Simulated scan of single mutants.
Amino acid sequence: MPVERELQTLIERNMEAMLGVRFLASEFTMGERHGGRMDSLPTCGGVGRGGAARRR
């Protein structure tokens, strides 16, 4: 596994603990209108327990 992919997997598996956001999807396609993709798609909504949603 290439180093970049290993790092992406490590971050995705620990996203909530490290960043206070919940991981949703990997390699998320943005669609034809916007093009491109997101390597890791997180959400802060409903995380609770001191996560990003409570820090606002």
Rank of each mutant, 00 (worst) to 15 (best):
F23D: 11
R33Q: 09
V21C: 11
Q8E: 15
P2F: 02
E16H: 00
D39W: 01
E12F: 00
A17L: 08
C44H: 13
M1S: 09
V3T: 03
V3M: 07
R37T: 11
R49Q: 12
T29I: 14
T43P: 13
L24N: 13
A25C: 08
R49F: 07
P42C: 09
M38K: 11
L24M: 08
A25D: 14
L7C: 06
R13Y: 09
D39I: 02
E16Q: 08
M38Q: 07
I11R: 13
N14I: 14
V3H: 02
G45W: 08
T43Q: 14
R56T: 02
E4D: 11
E16Y: 00
P42Y: 12
P42M: 13
G35I: 07
R22M: 15
R56V: 04
T43I: 12
T29G: 10
G36T: 14
E27D: 09
E4C: 09
S40C: 10
P2H: 10
G50N: 14
A53M: 04
T29M: 10
T29S: 10
V21F: 15
G46P: 02
V47D: 08
R54L: 03
H34P: 12
G51D: 12
G20Q: 03
R33T: 15
C44K: 01
F28C: 09
E32R: 06
R55W: 07
R5Y: 07
T29C: 14
D39C: 03
N14A: 11
H34E: 15
P42H: 14
P42S: 12
M38G: 06
M38I: 03
I11M: 10
R49V: 03
P2T: 04
G48I: 04
P42G: 12
E27K: 00
G46N: 07
N14P: 08
N14E: 14
R54W: 05
R55I: 01
R49M: 14
A25P: 06
R22G: 08
D39T: 01
T43E: 15
P2L: 07
G20C: 03
F23Q: 08
G31A: 09
S40N: 14
R49W: 06
